[in-house]
Amino acid sequence: MYSLFKREICYFFTSPIGFTIIGLFIVLNGLFLWVFKTDYNIFNAGFADLLSFFRLSSWIFVFLVPALTMRSISEEKRSGMLTLLFTKPISAMQMVLGKYLGILFLLFVILWSSFLYVYMVWVLGTPMGNLDIAGTIGSYIALFLLIASFAAVGLWASSISSNQIISFVLAAFLCFFFFFGFDQLLALASDDFGGWGFQTHFDAISRGVLDTRNIVYFLSIIFFFLYLTTLSLKAYKQ
C-alpha cells in the first residue's frame, strides 16, 4: 500500500497535474477574492473574514477534485497496469487506500497553500489579527472533510470506466449533486427532508462547532464510496 501511495505522490509532482491543480486553486481563489468585483470579494465585504474563501473553495473543489481523481484508476485500466498490479501481493482494499491517501496528500498540500490568504486577512484586520480563529479552524476541518468525500466519490467514478473523460464527468456530476442538488431535490418533496446533502453538514462544521454527527456523516460517505471502489476492482479482477 505504501508503494502505491508513494507512486501517486511521485506522479503528481513529477507531472504537470499536481502543480496545475495547485496553481488553478490559488489563481481562481485569488481572482475572485481580491480582483473580481463579486460577492466573494473580500474588499467589497468591508471586513477581514475568510468566509468567502471557504464558500468559494467548496465550489471550486466540486470540479477540481474530479479532475484530480479521473486518472487514478481509469488510466491504470486503459494502460493494462491494473492487471499487472493484481499479480502483486496486495489486496484490492490496500490498492484503493494507497491511491486514496495519495490524493488526500495532494489535497492537503493544496489547502496548505491557502494559508497565504489567512495571513493576508490577518494583516488586513483592524486591529491586526482580528480574525475568528475557532471559526477558521472549523472551516478548514469542514473543507478537508468535504474534499475527502469528493475524492472518495471521484475515485469510485474512476474505477468504473477506463475513459478519463467519462470518469471526470460522472464524478463532477455526483459531487455537484451531493453538494447542492440533493438537498434541493428533497426540498421539492418536503422541507422535512432537507439537511442530507454535503453542503448542510459542511456549513454546520464551518461555524466552528465540531458536532460528531456531521463528522460521522462525512466519514460514512468516504467509507461507503471506498468500499464501492473496492468492489469495483474485485469485479474487474474476476
Rank of each mutant, 00 (worst) to 15 (best):
H201R: 15
S113M: 12
M128P: 00
L68K: 03
S114W: 00
P89E: 01
L50P: 02
K99S: 03
F53T: 07
F180P: 03
D49P: 01
F168N: 09
Q199A: 14
Y217H: 08
L106T: 04
A92E: 03
Y40T: 11
S162I: 02
F144E: 07
S139Q: 02
K237N: 14
D183L: 11
D203L: 15
S159Q: 07
F108V: 11
V209E: 14
W122E: 06
S114I: 04
F43R: 13
S15D: 03
V216D: 06
K88H: 09
E75Y: 01
Q199C: 07
N214D: 15
E76A: 05
Y11Q: 08
D192F: 04
L106N: 06
Y227A: 14
M1H: 10
I21W: 05
I21A: 10
T38M: 14
Q184G: 12
M93T: 12
I222Y: 06
G80P: 05
A92F: 01
D39A: 12
L84I: 02
F115M: 09
A67M: 15
L219C: 14
I137W: 01
L4A: 04
G208T: 07
P127W: 11
L51W: 11
I215G: 08
F202K: 02
L111W: 08
A134Q: 12
D183Y: 13
F168W: 14
R55Q: 12
I133R: 00
K6W: 10
Y140C: 03
E75Q: 03
F108P: 07
V153D: 01
Y2N: 10
A67D: 07
A152S: 11
N130E: 10
S159F: 05
L56P: 12
K237E: 15
S79E: 02
D49L: 07
I110L: 12
S91M: 01
T83N: 14
